[in-house]
């Protein structure tokens, strides 16, 4: 019996969910306590709860908590959507942005940057990102409505990815001054720094809707393990599933990218990490991968602030630096277990 099977029988699913939720909340608390300014979390918390507008309370409510909660939301979105995409395409290489929504969101944000709207309105940037993701989702669903199959949609997603990527490069190329280009490049690297409550409230509703859409496909994703014919014979509407998953990815990942920029590898690694614990069941993997994504993102964002480098490393850089070797090690271990 493989290690995967043994784990699954030892840790019941509710215990896994509870354990990961506690871990994510604990990391949220650590994230709120960690920062550059010496900070008494206990005093700030009691000031904030008592409504005393001290400096500590303000830092907690306006900077630390939004950053920690955004880390949680963004990580959960990436992990959950990654698991949903892998299950849908039955391909362990799939990642949340596969259908083009992340690069389209990044392009939307870059266009806003470029036009100077972001200077006028702080929420213009995330709104632009969401508009980009929505455009990608609408385009893909139009392709689907014209009868494109799953493979054609993935290729469509790749086309959207590369188009959005080259338009982003074009914006950089034509940037009026080097400083503007640098700002765009830095933003694209992905970060949770200096995000406020405004952004939090802006992305929460679309993210929740996106999560619900992805989670509603759990049973159909389980059935797809047996292939499309068998899944349909088990009573699942695969065209409906496709619409739900594309819309879910656009809402959850699109809003994540539009506030944090590109945070790579979390959506790819989290499902791989949790798959043995889910007994490889794609439906059961969804919540587990979401929670694992939240933990990974929070841990990386804590590491960013603990590392002595200045300027602060970008979150997306750290997740990719840790994620890539980690994924290679994970794949090597799974190979050994299968052999």
């Amino acid at each position: 019996m493989t290690a995967a099977a043994t784990w699954e029988s030892r840790i019941p699913y509710p215990a896994l969910i509870a354990g990961l939720t506690l871990l994510a909340l604990a990391l949220c608390a650590v994230s709120a306590a960690v920062g550059y300014v010496p900070f008494d979390l206990g005093a700030a918390l009691s000031d904030w709860l008592a409504g005393r507008p001290t400096l500590g309370a303000l830092v907690l409510a306006e900077l630390r908590l939004p950053r920690a909660l955004l880390g949680l939301l963004v990580g959960f979105s990436l992990g959950l959507t990654g698991a949903a995409m892998q299950g849908w395409l039955r391909n362990p290489l799939a990642e949340p942005g596969l259908v083009g929504v992340s690069s389209a969101a990044a392009l939307g944000a870059v266009i806003v940057f470029y036009s100077g709207l972001s200077a006028a309105l702080s929420l213009a940037l995330p709104l632009g990102g969401m508009a980009g993701a929505a455009a990608a989702a609408v385009l893909l669903n139009l392709m689907a409505a014209r009868g494109a199959g799953t493979t054609a949609l993935v290729i469509g997603g790749i086309a959207i990815n590369s188009l959005a990527g080259s338009l982003t490069a074009l914006a950089l190329n034509l940037a009026p001054n080097p400083y503007a280009a640098l700002e765009i490049v830095f933003w694209l690297m992905g970060s949770l720094a200096d995000r406020g409550t405004d952004q939090l409230w802006l992305v929460l509703p679309p993210m929740l809707a996106g999560w619900a859409l992805c989670l509603s496909g759990a049973r159909a994703l389980d059935a797809l393990t047996l292939g499309e014919d068998a899944a349909r014979s088990l009573g699942f509407d695969l065209a409906g599933l496709r619409v739900r998953l594309i819309a879910g990815a656009a809402l959850a990942v699109g809003s994540a990218v539009s506030v944090t920029g590109a945070v790579g590898f979390v959506g790819l690694v989290a499902p791989h990490l949790m798959r043995p614990l889910a007994g490889a069941r794609p439906g059961r993997l969804l919540l587990l991968a979401g929670l694992a994504g939240a933990c990974l993102t929070l841990a990386a964002d804590i590491a960013v602030r603990l590392l002595p480098t200045r300027p602060e490393l970008k979150l997306g850089v750290v997740t990719a630096l840790i994620g890539a070797p980690f994924l290679i090690a994970l794949i090597a271990r799974l190979r050994r277990e299968e052999a």
Binding site: E8, R90, D222, A223, G227, L234, R275, G279, A280
Partner: peptide, 26 residues
């Protein structure tokens, strides 16, 4: 109607019991 496809694919390393349980989805 239960439909058993020809040399049906199994895309994830599920345990046999979990695989058989998929037949109960309807």
């Amino acid at each position: 109607i239960a439909y058993l496809p020809q040399s049906g694919p199994v895309h994830w390393p599920l345990r046999a019991e979990a695989l058989v349980m998929l037949g109960r989805l309807p």
